[in-house]
Simulated scan of single mutants.
Amino acid sequence: MTSAKLFVPIIAALCLAACNSAQPVAVAQAPVAATRNTTPVGFELPDGSGCSGAIRRYRAIMDNDLAMGHVTQGVYATIQNEIAAAASACAAGRDAQAVALVHASKARHGYPG
């Protein structure tokens, strides 16, 4: 066997070894599995007026969307923080500000106002 014929398998082995020693690629975590794929029969948005009604309705929509897999847990947590800020404003008697916070959150996340 000539030295050139020995050289090819050695290069091939080194290339394969280099490929196998590469750092693992980070894989994104799968979102939380949906518990259902449709809104439950008889689902109704909560009643109420003013900021408290707007907040209860938005929470119900988000809980339903999370259960159906329409939002990830991370987006859901972000929106829950935004709803909590609106609920704080509502509890402090700042109705207009609370409703504005709900509308801004809906707009930011693609929900109709």
Rank of each mutant, 00 (worst) to 15 (best):
Q29N: 07
Q29L: 14
A30W: 04
P31W: 00
P31F: 03
V32Q: 14
V32I: 15
A33T: 05
A33F: 08
A33Q: 07
A33C: 06
T35P: 02
N37W: 07
N37L: 04
T38A: 10
T39M: 11
P40T: 04
V41E: 10
F43A: 00
F43K: 00
E44R: 14
L45H: 09
L45M: 09
L45N: 00
D47K: 11
G48N: 10
G48Y: 07
S49H: 02
S49P: 00
S49C: 03
G50F: 12
G50M: 11
G50K: 09
C51R: 02
S52T: 12
G53V: 02
G53Y: 00
R57I: 00
R57S: 15
Y58D: 13
R59W: 00
R59V: 09
R59L: 06
A60D: 12
I61E: 13
I61V: 15
D63H: 15
D63S: 14
N64S: 12
N64V: 11
D65P: 04
L66W: 08
L66E: 04
A67V: 09
M68Q: 13
G69P: 03
H70S: 04
V71Y: 15
Q73I: 06
G74E: 14
V75Y: 10
V75A: 12
V75N: 07
A77K: 11
A77D: 15
